[in-house]
Lab assay of single mutants.
Amino acid sequence: MDETGKELVLALYDYQEKSPREVTMKKGDILTLLNSTNKDWWKVEVKITVNGKTYERQGFVPAAYVKKL
């Protein structure tokens, strides 16, 4: 869990989004888990830094590609 009590997951593999509802992740990324009720796709939040500014983006990743921490 992070400092706000949200559950975290670890990306076990790289994943490139294939639709606007998904998010890209790299092996080793730590993501915030938002919803894991679907056994195949989990909703996560990723933080992306571009030119020194951090953005948060929500989307789905394959559940088999992440592990709860």
Rank of each mutant, 00 (worst) to 15 (best):
K67E: 12
G28F: 04
S19D: 11
K47L: 13
L69D: 03
E7K: 09
W42D: 00
L34S: 02
G52C: 09
Y55A: 09
R57H: 07
A63G: 04
V50W: 09
T54M: 12
W42R: 01
D2N: 10
D2H: 11
A11I: 02
E3P: 12
K47P: 13
I30A: 02
S36N: 09
N35D: 15
V61S: 00
Y55M: 12
F60N: 04
I48M: 09
N38P: 04
V46H: 12
A64Y: 08
E17S: 15
W41F: 06
L31T: 01
G52Q: 07
L69I: 15
K68F: 08
L34E: 02
Y15I: 01
D40N: 14
P20E: 11
G28C: 08
T4S: 15
D40Q: 13
F60T: 03
E56Q: 15
V61K: 00
W41T: 02
K53F: 14
K27N: 04
Q58W: 08
P62F: 02
V46Y: 07
G59Q: 01
D29N: 05
G5T: 14
T32W: 12
K53S: 11
F60P: 00
E22W: 03
E56A: 15
G59F: 04
T49P: 07
R57P: 01
V23E: 00
T37H: 11
S36R: 07
L10D: 01
K18C: 10
N35I: 06
V46S: 12
L31W: 03
R57C: 05
Y65K: 06
T49G: 06
K26Y: 11
S19W: 05
S19F: 06
T4H: 14
V61I: 08
M1A: 14
Y15P: 01
T37N: 13
V9W: 04
N35G: 06
S36E: 15
G28V: 01
K53N: 14
R57F: 04
V50E: 12
D2L: 10
N35P: 03
Y13W: 12
V23H: 02
G59W: 02
E7D: 10
Y15Q: 01
E17F: 06
G59K: 01
A11S: 05
N38L: 09
V50R: 09
A64C: 13
N38Q: 09
V44T: 01
T24Y: 03
K26F: 12
N35K: 06
D40V: 14
Y55C: 10
L34V: 13
T32H: 09
T49M: 13
T32R: 15
L34Y: 04
Q16V: 15
L10C: 08
I30E: 03
F60D: 04
G5F: 12
K67Y: 08
Y65I: 06
V9K: 00
K67H: 09
V46I: 15
K67L: 13
Y15M: 01
L31I: 07
Q16A: 12
V44R: 00
Y15F: 07
L12V: 07
T4G: 14
M1T: 15
E3A: 10
G5L: 12
T32N: 07
L34W: 04
K53D: 12
D29T: 06
K39S: 12
N38F: 07
L34G: 01
T37L: 09
G52E: 07
K6G: 09
G59E: 01
V44Q: 00
G5C: 13
L12W: 03
V61M: 01
V50S: 10
V50H: 09
Y65A: 10
K47T: 14
E7A: 09
L33C: 06
T37W: 08
T37G: 10
K53M: 14
P20V: 09
V46R: 14
D40R: 13
L69R: 03
K47S: 13
Q58P: 05
K68C: 08
V50K: 11
N51H: 10
E45H: 06
E17Y: 05
K47Y: 11
K27H: 05
W42T: 03
A63H: 03
I30C: 05
R57A: 05
K47A: 10
K18L: 09
L10K: 07
Y13A: 10
E3M: 08
T32F: 10
L33N: 01
L69W: 07
A64P: 08
D14F: 03
V50N: 10
E45G: 13
M25N: 00
A63N: 02
K53G: 09
E45A: 14
T32S: 08
K18W: 03
T24R: 06
R57Q: 07
T37P: 03
N35A: 09
G28S: 03
E56F: 15
E56G: 14
L34C: 06
E22T: 07
R57T: 06
W41R: 03
R21S: 13
I48R: 07
T54F: 10
W41C: 05
K68A: 07
V46E: 03
D2F: 04
L31D: 00
D29R: 03
P62C: 03
T49E: 13
Y65M: 12
T4W: 11
S19H: 14
L10E: 10
L34F: 04
V50G: 06
E56K: 15
M1H: 15
I48Y: 13
G5Q: 14
W41I: 03
I30Y: 05
A63T: 05
E3L: 07
T24W: 03
Y13C: 12
T49V: 15
V44K: 00
Y55T: 12
E3C: 12
Q58E: 09
S36V: 06
K67A: 11
K67R: 15
D29A: 06
N35W: 06
V50C: 10
D14S: 08
D14Q: 03
T32G: 08
W41S: 02
D40W: 15
G52F: 08
K43L: 15
T32Y: 11
L8N: 05
K47H: 12
L31P: 01
K6M: 11
K39R: 11
E45I: 12
L10A: 05
V46T: 15
S36F: 06
E7S: 13
